[in-house]
Write a protein that binds this DNA or RNA. Structure first.
Lengths: 343, 343
DNA sequence: CTCGGTTTTCAAAGCGCTTTGGATGCCGGC
DNA sequence: GCCGGCATCCAAAGCGCTTTGAAAACCGAG
C-alpha cells in the first residue's frame, strides 16, 4: 500500500493525502479525518526511503563500531549507553543505525555513513586523546556529539561527559582520608581520554596529600574481569602491596574481589576497593546497600542526554556548541574501610 | 556529489556511470576504469536512499529492542550477539538498524520497520514460549531469523539456537555424578524459551537419576548479579541447603559466588557451581583455567551465524527453512567438586 | 560497400514520497 | 453582478538512483 494507491481509494490526490497525514493546514479537517481513518484501516506506512529522498533527511542516527577492537561494541557500557539513546531517538522519530568498520577505515565509515545519506547525524563513542575523528566530522559538517571528550582537540564540538577527573580525585581522597597510603589504580586503556582523566584525578589527589605515585601500583588495560583479577594478584605479591584499589569499572572490580578472596583477604577490611560504577542495569551495585564503594554515574542516562543533544544539533546546525558535564556521586558501600596496619 | 554531476564531469550518461560502478558487463573496461577513478577522486558515494528506492532493497537489517523490559537491550548477551552479527552484515554490505518499541507495540514495530521499507529482514531475539511475533512475521512475509526457538509455535521458521536442554542435562548429570543430590537451579525468566529448555534438561537429568525436584531449589528471574546473590543467600538458609547450584548466566554466577563468600563457604568445595557461559568477550570465564565450570557457547558466534543465515534467507526467500542447533561444551573449572558430607 | 551481429552508450521511465505553483470553488463586499 | 480573498485541492516537478528499450558505433564476413 503506497501513497498513490491510498489516494485513489480516497479519490483524492497524493498531494492532499500527504498533507493530511503530515499535519499541514491547507486541508479541511473533514478530509484529514477521512484520510487518517483510511490510512489506519489499510495499514499505510509511508516508505521511509522515498520520504527520505524527498525530504533530504533520513531520520536515522548512526553509530560506528570498530570491529578490531573487539570489546568496544560488546562492552556492556556501550550497551547501556545505546539503550538510553535509542529510547530518546524513538521519541523523536529517529532510528538508530550501526555500521561496522575496521580500525583503519573508521573515519571512512563515518564519512560514508553520512555522505551516502544514510544518517542525519552520528555519535562518536570512546574518544581517545587527540581523537582525529572529531576534526574529520567537523570538516564534513556532520552533526555529531561526542560521548566523552578529547584532550588535545582544540576545535569546539558538542560533548557530554562525566567529570572523570573530579570523581577519581574524590574517590582517591576518600581513601586517603581513611588512612590509605598505598593506593593502586586499575585503570582502563590510557589512550582513552576518560582513562587519562581518571588517572589525572588520582594523581592530583595523591599530590594534594603529599604522596608520590608508585608506577607499580598503576595499571592500565581493557577493563575485564580477568584483568582486574590478574593485576590485583600481581600487586598483592609486591613487597609493599596496596591497601586500597581504585578500579575503572565494576567488571574489573569483580575480578579484584576474586583475587582478594583467593588471597584470603577480606574486602573492606584488609583491602579497600572503590570502583567506577556506570550503573548498568543488569549489573547493579547491590540492592539497597552498595556492594562496592563507587563513583556512580548512569551511562544510560548519558545516552539519553546525548541523544537529545544530538537531535537538537540536527535541528539547529549553527547553534553555538553545547556541552554537558555530569558529576558522579560517591556512594559508600562495604568495600572500603580504614587502612589496616597503621603504625 | 551525485551521479548526475559525476556523469557530467565524465561526459557520460548517468546510465553508463551507474553501470560502470556496479560492475555490469555492458561497459568497456576502459570506461569503467575512467569512471572508477573519477568516483574515487571526487569521493562519490551513491545515495543510499535513492539506491534503495530504485532497487527496492534497503541493505539494512533490523533489530527491535523492547524498551519496557529494560534489560533486554542492555543485556550483555545481546551486545555480544549483535557484535557478531554486525560484523557479518558489514561483510555483505548490510547495515544494522535498531528500533525501540514498548512492549505493547512490539509487533507493530516489526511491521512498521519492514513495511515502510526501512529494512530487508529482521532478527527476532529473546523468543518466549509461544512467541506470537513469529506468526506475525511469517504472515507479513518478512525475511527473519529467530535467535532461539519457541516451543508451541508449529510454523516452520529459520532459527539458530544452542541446545539448552542437552547442555543443562549434561551439567546436571555431571553434578549428580559428583555425588550431589541437592542441586539448585537459578534460571532466567521462565517465560523465555531458553530458560524453559534449560529447566527441562535439569529436570530430565534429575529424573534419570531417580531424584525428585524440589521447588524450593528452583528459582527464576532476570539474570542479574544481585539476583544470583539473593537467591543463593536465600537457599543457603534452608534446612537442607543445596550442595550444588546451576545458574543460567555468568553474571548471576558471580552473585552466587558473592553469597557463598559471605556465608564463609568455599566454592567448589562446600558448594559446587556451574554457570552457563555465553563466552562474552569482556567477561571471560578465566584466562587459561576456567573460573567456573560451565556450559559454554559463544553467543557472538551465534550472532555471526544468524546474520549469515538471514542474509541467505533474504537472497532466497523461498528456500526451505533452515535451522541450526549448536552444542554447548562443558568446560570444567574450579567451581565444582565432589559433594561434601557424604554419609 | 553493405549488412547482420556485437559492443557500447544513452534517453527516459519509474521507485514513492514532498512541495511548488497553480487551479477551483465559494464566500461576502461593493 | 463582479471581484478579491480565502479555503481546498491538485498536477507536475524533483529527490538520486536503476533499468528498460533503443540508438549509435564498430566489427568482420560476404
Amino acid at each position: 500500500m503506497n501513497l498513490k494507491q491510498l489516494s485513489q481509494i480516497l479519490d483524492l490526490s497524493p498531494t492532499t493525502v500527504s498533507r493530511a497525514l503530515n499535519g499541514y493546514p491547507e486541508v479541511s479537517e473533514e478530509t484529514r479525518l477521512r484520510v487518517q481513518a483510511a490510512a489506519a484501516k489499510h495499514g499505510y506506512r509511508p516508505n521511509a526511503r522515498a520520504k527520505g529522498l524527498a525530504t533530504g533527511r533520513s531520520m536515522v542516527i548512526g553509530h560506528v563500531i570498530p570491529s578490531s577492537s573487539r570489546h568496544e561494541m560488546v562492552n556492556p557500557i556501550f550497551g547501556d549507553f545505546v539503550a538510553g539513546a535509542v529510547k530518546k531517538y524513538a521519541e523523536h522519530g529517529y532510528d538508530m543505525m550501526f555500521t561496522n568498520a575496521d580500525d583503519t577505515s573508521i573515519e571512512d565509515a563515518y564519512r560514508s555513513l553520512f555522505q551516502r545519506g544514510a544518517v542525519d547525524g552520528v555519535v562518536l563513542q570512546g574518544p581517545k586523546v587527540n581523537e582525529p575523528r572529531i576534526e574529520v566530522l567537523t570538516r564534513m559538517q556532520v552533526p555529531f556529539i561526542v560521548h566523552g571528550r578529547s584532550t588535545g582537540v582544540s576545535l569546539p564540538y558538542d560533548w557530554i561527559d562525566v567529570n572523570n577527573k573530579s570523581s577519581f580525585l574524590r574517590a582517591t581522597r576518600f581513601l586517603i582520608d581513611l588512612g590509605h597510603r598505598r593506593i593502586a589504580l586499575i585503570n582502563g586503556l590510557e589512550d582513552m581520554d576518560f582513562a587519562q582523566r581518571r588517572r589525572d584525578g588520582y594523581l592530583e589527589a595523591l599530590k594534594q596529600a603529599g604522596l608520590s605515585p608508585d608506577p607499580a601500583l598503576m595499571r592500565s588495560a581493557e577493563m575485564t574481569e580477568v584483568y582486574g583479577h590478574h593485576e590485583t594478584r600481581d600487586m598483592l605479591r609486591l613487597d609493599d602491596p596496596p591497601t586500597a584499589i581504585l578500579t575503572s569499572s565494576m567488571i574489573s572490580a569483580i575480578g579484584v574481589r576474586r583475587a582478594l578472596d583467593e588471597a584470603g583477604l577480606k574486602m573492606g577490611r584488609d583491602v579497600s576497593v572503590i570502583a567506577h560504577d556506570d550503573d548498568l542495569s543488569y549489573l547493579k551495585n547491590g540492592q539497597d546497600v552498595p556492594i562496592f564503594t563507587a563513583t556512580r554515574s548512569s551511562v544510560r542516562h548519558a545516552g539519553e542526554l546525548a541523544a537529545e543533544m544530538l537531535i537538537e544539533r540536527i535541528r539547529a546546525p549553527h547553534d553555538p556548541v553545547k556541552t554537558r558535564l555530569l558529576e558522579a556521586e560517591l556512594v559508600v558501600g562495604g568495600s572500603t574501610g580504614p587502612a589496616p596496619n597503621r603504625f
